[in-house]
Design a protein around this nucleic acid. Sequence first.
DNA 1: AGCGTGATTGCATACGGATGCAAAAGCCCT
DNA 2: AGGGCTTTTGCATCCGTATGCAATCACGCT
Lengths: 358, 358
Amino acid sequence: MAARTPPEAAGAGTASAGTDPGSDAPAVLPGGAVTARALARRLGVSQSMISRAFSPGASIAPAMRARILAAAEALGYRPNFIAASLSRRRSSLVGLVMGELSNPFYPAVLEQFSQALQAAGFQTLLFTVPPGQEADAALPLLRQYHVDAVVVTSASLSSAGAAHWRGDGRSALLFNRAGDGPTPLDSIACDNVGGGRLAAEALLARGRQRPAFVAGRADTSTSREREAGFFAVFAERGLAPPRRIEAGEYSYAAGHRAALAAGDTDGLFFANDILALGGLDALRHGRGRRVPEEVSVIGFDDIPMAAWPAYELATLRQPVAAMVAASVALLRARLSGQAGPEPHRQRLPAELLRRASL
Amino acid sequence: MAARTPPEAAGAGTASAGTDPGSDAPAVLPGGAVTARALARRLGVSQSMISRAFSPGASIAPAMRARILAAAEALGYRPNFIAASLSRRRSSLVGLVMGELSNPFYPAVLEQFSQALQAAGFQTLLFTVPPGQEADAALPLLRQYHVDAVVVTSASLSSAGAAHWRGDGRSALLFNRAGDGPTPLDSIACDNVGGGRLAAEALLARGRQRPAFVAGRADTSTSREREAGFFAVFAERGLAPPRRIEAGEYSYAAGHRAALAAGDTDGLFFANDILALGGLDALRHGRGRRVPEEVSVIGFDDIPMAAWPAYELATLRQPVAAMVAASVALLRARLSGQAGPEPHRQRLPAELLRRASL
DNA sequence: AGCGTGATTGCATACGGATGCAAAAGCCCT
DNA sequence: AGGGCTTTTGCATCCGTATGCAATCACGCT
């Protein structure tokens, strides 16, 4: 079965001479592009066969495929994804819209998404949304690149933008964000309400009497949902509602300010870890309060710093890996047309990590 | 409201249906793609004109361009980048290869790069390299997507991989990494040697007698260069060389361990901030040493956490914005063929930030 | 040996735009 | 009014693959 390489090759001089890694690449144009046609001519077959050799499940004899793949390897041929995308009307590109990369939670999300997408055969086209802006601005560009799907994380997408996207028959997914209002988009997020409840229960179990909640950005579903869960527990038990402090944004500095303004509280639940870390520092270094002796602090996300000895922050861990896996699975289902028309909304449970700050 | 597209909006009915009687060609296909040809037919002009209307500097009458752009706006036409890339032999995509996103320094780099590239008309194709792996694995894929250039950050690229890339006539840029050995690649990085020197001088000026250096990954140029600069100052002054501790990797935990193993030192220079933060916590919480009274600590990078009250870490700030700007400028120069064949290597100075830990 | 079938392969064309070249318009001047 | 030019347009082709369809091939069976 030894794949015979046509010895007659093309040119005379450099012939096949084996692919010597030491020397510069020969026989290949300086432009570097070996096309399927060139390979085909070389092997005396049609360009179609080259294409089929690289298409899993295509109609092609095993021997032929082996011969082509070997030759491709030798000449350094790889299908041009751009051309393939045009022809196949599918780019294998997924647009990833991100904001708030300054919150360490998101780089982790980004990394896992990137890996998962790569593993699933997609490439990641990254868009960064400047703080405070909506993701809508990225949509036209994403459309021009004909991405197969869009994942919007940590940024908001207006209903109009969402509708527009859907109108194109493309797939969009909100990650860690719920659609605002009747947005007909898929979404995968953490069970923020449940997480808020766990936080409330933990503080109550700890015997805290004067709890408080520090809200993040008011226009984020994460903050609102965590708040709702937190307050619900107190309401259900007939307890006075916790105090509520508005941090306004998800930043260390905002958390710091919020804690300084928190007044007399003995249990703080912050909308996320970055806020909580700022708050923790403010309590200890700014107000001289002892944590957890005098005040309990709970955050949300479980960013790496939460586990550092300087903080030992109790928090609600988001199941990022599972959320990413679910997202990619959903995208694949959508792209293969297996998912129904109704939006898929999934919530994964948060887990309470009890650390020293509680 | 979304732009509805009445079939006879502009022309007197597309009823003429011009070309193909077999398949109806509605102005807007269900897929959502309005093509240049459709728009052209609609306006009674040639497809070429549509293309030119969107090409700055193309030969087209201002009035014609305005008419086309208006119609495009109304119908939601946008040039298909995939098709344009194929035709123009240029994708406007830049591959960004990243690793170590767990080091907060890199998300910031990523964000700035993404923004700068977007502003320069490029899109970012992101590749994530799992820790410990070389960036080489991403190259074939990047080649298949015909990216215009590659930026490799916080990951290493083998000489072979580099040479291969160059052979294609493509442009590659090492960011914050020097080429290993005779790598003929462009590189833009911080002046790590100079930064190391500044650290040494700062510790000496502080009167520290038993300095130590905590190295990061041995295979990174950043760690080696910072170390070289640090040691050079002592050597030049005829002082005993500082103690050297091998952290092995750039992580909080490694820094923590290194500080615990640091023995009797009164001045620690860590290869980067993440290590330094781990070290700081180990010194304070693990060994009960007071910083800066008993020990001075200096890091490198200036990640956001370094400024937090819990740390107040003195560090060497990398001029990220300037480095990114220089990188994008270089890429543009390369792509427009303005840069010479010799690799461009640039070093931007680090700035010492004196904070409480010094 | 002839035929039926399923497996392979080649052909031709589509995907959506960009662009060299030549035809068609304008413009200015004598 | 006609000639010499400069703009504008349209035409035809190309970019590199994928794929429907028809042509071939390889075999097993009667």
